[in-house]
């Protein structure tokens, strides 16, 4: 059974079809890249899967369960981790506390009124940070971190509840090229080691072709290609879209 199964997802904004009849699946341990030019509907797709947006039609199944239109927090509880295109972290907390926050939520301790939160699950948070190479900065304020480091923190947060699926919207946006490969390589290793399914969007085609097991291509809200990296690279429709839109189709 696929970890994530998306069927005929649809969404319009004011009469404009942002996503139309999109279906795909992600398997455990698989890295699936969702690519497409600007405005292709990638983020809309992501937000419908993650629960931030309510689809106009279609279903989303996670681990065999219909999660269509569930609120994000419920989807998270089922085991879906998420990073955002523009990082979303808690600026008034330290790096470690950001991760601890996810752990507190995961362990159902949000409604505790007495213990010092900063002392709960600290070791576990540090271990997660170590996985993404951020343990040295555990006690710094999140608000002062470099952008690339924030992306790592987000990854650590997303991994905190042992997810079966990771949704990563532009995980490397704003990072230096060398860092990008590093982060996605890291993600890939963790995902394969733990059998996590990863759905990610990415602009940098070097990253996509280096890390993705499979690629689906979206254009104007429609799925135009799907397959292994070499297959997609050779796809005429894909080439047309990318050349037509003026984007560089990296990796040539």
């Amino acid at each position: 059974m696929s970890v994530l199964l998306v069927e005929s997802l649809r969404k319009s904004f004011g009469g404009v079809e942002a996503v139309a009849e999109v279906s795909f699946a992600v398997e455990a341990g698989e890295m699936l890249a969702l690519i497409g030019p600007n405005g292709a509907g990638k983020t809309t797709c992501f937000n419908m899967v993650g629960g931030q947006l309510r689809p106009d039609g279609g279903r989303v199944h996670f681990a065999g369960r219909d999660i269509t239109s569930m609120p994000p927090r419920a989807i998270w509880r089922l085991g879906v981790g998420r990073t955002f295109q523009i990082t979303a972290t808690f600026g008034s907390m330290t790096v470690a506390e950001n991760v601890q926050m996810a752990l507190l939520s995961h362990r159902g301790r949000l409604w505790n009124w007495w213990p010092r939160a900063t002392r709960l699950y600290r070791e576990e948070a540090i271990r997660l940070l170590a996985q993404v190479g951020m343990e040295d900065q555990a006690d710094r304020a999140c608000s002062v971190l470099a952008y690339g480091d924030l992306k790592r923190v987000e990854l650590a947060v997303a991994l905190a509840h042992d997810p079966k699926l990771l949704l990563m919207d532009e995980p490397t946006a704003g990072m230096a090229p060398a860092e990008r490969i590093g982060l996605m390589d890291l993600t890939g290793r963790i995902a394969r080691a733990r059998g996590i399914a990863v759905l990610f969007t990415e602009h940098d085609m070097d990253v996509v072709f280096a890390q993705a097991d499979r690629i689906i291509v979206l254009n104007r809200g429609r799925l135009i290609a799907e397959g292994a990296p070499p297959q997609v690279r050779a796809d005429r429709a894909v080439q047309e879209v990318y050349l037509g839109s003026g984007s560089t189709f990296g990796g040539h």
């Binding site: 993650g50 931030q52 609120p71 994000p72 927090r73 998270w76 509880r77 998420r82 955002f84 979303a88 972290t89 808690f90 600026g91 008034s92 907390m93 926050m101 996810a102 939520s105 995961h106 947060v157 905190a160 509840h161």
Partner: peptide, 10 residues
């Protein structure tokens, strides 16, 4: 700090 992130961690 971030309602988006907060909702996304349950």
């Amino acid at each position: 700090d971030s309602p988006l992130r907060a909702e996304a961690i349950g």
